[in-house]
Design a protein around this nucleic acid. Structure first.
Lengths: 342, 342
DNA sequence: TGTTGAAGTGTTATCGTTAACAGTGCATAA
DNA sequence: TTATGCACTGTTAACGATAACACTTCAACA
């Protein structure tokens, strides 16, 4: 079917080995021979088969990248960062969308392993993702976790300081007068959810505000989850004055639910969340958020992974905690906020 | 290093062939033998090497996907759609970010070919991408183009009806009273740019408005391009009353430039563009846009590609034109502007 | 009893490339 | 002249899996 090294060898009147040497730039090939081989390669439009070389070298020069959703404006920069860094080092990226689904995630991991990727970048769905990562680590397979840590798992890791981010956000809400603050988060099965909840509680404590269990709503951290949880909040007898959602998708659902009830932000309800979104930030600088350095998650993660793959990493696992930025805009009713549109 | 089929065979006391049969669910294996093999697989934690099978079958079950930028809210759904569809058919996706750069794009194509992907989904950078696609088609290599067509290239293709979209958008501007409409587009080297410009001109003609060359600004279709081009516009003696930008990134830059000049939308300037952005649509239903079915580009593209790969496609190339939606919001000063979703 | 054939299993060669080793010349040195 | 070594090139055997074929059994039947 496709042109092989042997075809080139025949065309150039040399052995396959000589062609291989030319392709890989090994020295010890006569200039004239080299010229003939290169002519043959050109003439036949030969492209080396990296799959076959990979079989021998036991390296695919490919890494796997599993994220819950590329469309999520937090994860798409992660993907870009990881891909760019990997590519610069000569690695390809197999992209997988786990949809935050454990079963899919496990299937992806198995598929990537059977495809013999040299390493795996994983933004895990939740704590139970541990079950499919642990066997890899036992085999010394290079893995770097992104965004979320997994319980009792000693693994390279890039996270951001969720607790401090959440604390900053809630402290800001408190500083502009809110005391009744709802929090939309997940089912207590992700490190990010737990850390942000912790930050929320710390901020309340710090201000001497009592923690109310019924102000913390557990839901799926997507648009529909944010929508439903907000509906629940709005069914309460006594409404909170602010909602803090755990991420950028939940906040979209929350906004929908508020709008359906004819409530406006920040007049009737303050609204803040994790993750800044570029388009929103410019076109509608409105939401007060915690900004995470998303692209850095990807590029730094890829870097750690490549070090691990090349054996430069040493046995100890590395844990990198990125700092977050509080971006104050107008969604809290804060006096310091900039009007939504001028 | 890693466990191979031979190791399993030895452990189970059978030949490699028998193990292969069990793995691939071929019949003609004794139930008892099968049990032993499965036990050995389990015991050794064996994962089949798909690279090696690929060498024989001449199929990698992998497709390449090249987009200018995963972070662009138009392309990230394209990626998701393509990945999901490919995956359901048992294909993996190698993701490449060309950054709209021809040289990078060419490198990616060569790399994907040397990695023996079974097919390629390409959202080309511009007309000159033709040079790296044409050789593939000559070799009958499966390719599907996304979003942009390439001149004189007979290739499967998914595009949207850019001309009619642009016409709808500009007709709307005209209908609410604008007659002096600037258009930010690219250097006339993409089909989308040309088609949208054509739609723009058609709408003007239809309304008997003269076409002014100096109202059409050529730029890179990203944020910085939109910013600079808008600055140029604002330096004109006579300002237009509306700006139509060719895509969702350019509009961000345009907005920045307007804001810097203290101009607000739509009071001082109307602003419309191609591509809706989910977060904006809900959190700030403000921009009047042409919405393209981005995810469908990806899923349908993958579907066409898989048909081509499996030989189900027939020799003729297919050209699919997706329809667009005009979503009227508030950025034109239109009296009829209704928020898209309540 | 011998033949036939189906079920189950093994052997060999191969996919495209490369590592390791084995030549072949030819020039220089002894 | 013969030895020595260098430069260049070829041969063989892998990498891990599988297709194609060959070989056992053993039951069924003439």
């Amino acid at each position: 079917m496709s042109v092989t090294l042997k075809d080139v060898a025949k065309q150039a009147g040399v052995s396959a080995m000589t062609v291989s040497r030319v392709i890989n730039g090994r020295e010890g090939v006569d200039t004239e021979t080299q010229r003939r081989v290169e002519a043959a390669i050109e003439a036949l439009d030969y492209v080396p088969n990296r799959i076959a070389s990979g079989l021998i070298s036991q390296k695919t020069q490919t890494i796997g990248l599993i994220v819950p959703d590329v469309v999520n404006p937090f994860f798409s920069p992660v993907v870009r960062g990881a891909e760019a860094t990997a590519r610069k080092a000569g690695y390809r990226v197999l992209l997988c969308n786990s949809e935050g689904d454990l079963r899919l995630e496990r299937e992806y991991v198995e598929d990537l392993v059977s495809h013999r990727v040299d390493g795996l970048l994983l933004a895990p769905a939740n704590d139970r993702s541990r079950h499919c990562v642990f066997p890899l680590l036992r085999r010394n397979f290079p893995v770097v976790l992104l965004d979320r840590s997994l319980p009792d798992l000693d693994c390279d890791l890039i996270i951001s300081d969720s607790a401090s981010g959440a604390r900053k956000l809630v402290e800001h809400l408190i500083s502009v007068g809110h005391r009744n603050i709802a929090h939309l988060t997940d089912a207590d099965d992700t490190s990010t959810g737990r850390d942000r909840l912790r930050g929320y509680r710390e901020a309340l404590e710090g201000a001497g505000i009592e923690y109310h269990e019924d102000l913390v709503l557990r839901t799926t951290v997507d648009q529909i989850g944010g929508y439903r949880a907000t509906q629940q909040i709005l069914a309460h007898d006594q409404l909170p004055t602010a909602i803090f959602t755990v991420n950028n998708m939940t906040v979209v659902g929350a906004m929908q639910a508020l709008r359906e009830r004819g409530m406006s932000v920040p007049k009737d309800m303050a609204l803040v969340c994790f993750d800044d979104v570029e388009h929103l930030a410019v076109l509608s600088p409105f939401l007060t958020v915690i900004d995470q350095p998303a692209e850095t998650f990807g590029s730094l993660g890829a870097q750690l992974l490549l070090e691990r793959i090349s054996g430069k990493a040493g046995p100890r696992s590395r844990r990198i905690v990125l700092q977050t930025d509080l971006i104050i805009r107008a969604s809290c009713g804060s006096k310091t906020g900039i009007p939504r549109r001028e």
